[in-house]
C-alpha cells in the first residue's frame, strides 16, 4: 500500500471513529433507552466537557500548571464582557485585546 493510500485509509477510519460515536444513540433512538437518572446526569455533560477542554488550555503552559499568564487575563476579560454585555462580539474583542496587549507589554 502506498503512503498516499494509507493516509486516505486513516482519514476514513478516523471519520468512522467520529461519526459512529456521534450517531450512536441518535440512530438507536427509542430501541435503547438510558435510565432517567443517567439522562438527568447527562445534562451536566456539556458544561463538564467545555470546562475539561478550556481550563487546561488556559492554566497549563508546556505541560506545567502556570495559572498566572496573559491567557488567564484574556479569559477574565472575555467572561466579564459576556456577563456584562449582550454584544456577541465583545468577549472576543476584549479577550484578544487583553491577551495581545499583555504580550506586547511583556515583549517590549
Amino acid at each position: 500500500m502506498s503512503g498516499d493510500a494509507a493516509l486516505w485509509l486513516s482519514f476514513v477510519l478516523i471519520g468512522l471513529a467520529t461519526t459512529l460515536p456521534r450517531a450512536s444513540f441518535i440512530v438507536l433512538g427509542g430501541r435503547v433507552r438510558l435510565p432517567s437518572v443517567v439522562q438527568r446526569a447527562l445534562r451536566y455533560a456539556p458544561a463538564a466537557a467545555l470546562a475539561a477542554i478550556v481550563v487546561p488550555d488556559v492554566l497549563v503552559a508546556g505541560g506545567d500548571f502556570a495559572p498566572l499568564n496573559p491567557k488567564l487575563a484574556g479569559v477574565i476579560a472575555a467572561v466579564a464582557a459576556a456577563l456584562l454585555s449582550r454584544n456577541p462580539w465583545l468577549p472576543f474583542i476584549a479577550g484578544m485585546a487583553v491577551l495581545l496587549g499583555l504580550r506586547a507589554l511583556a515583549g517590549g
Partner: peptide, 25 residues
Amino acid sequence: TIALLVLLVPMAKQRPMLVAAVSSG
C-alpha cells in the same frame, strides 16, 4: 477558547452546573 467560554458562562449561572464545570476543569 473564548468561544467555548462564552458557551459555558450562561450554563454556569446554575449552581450544580458551576460545580460540574469547576470539578471537571
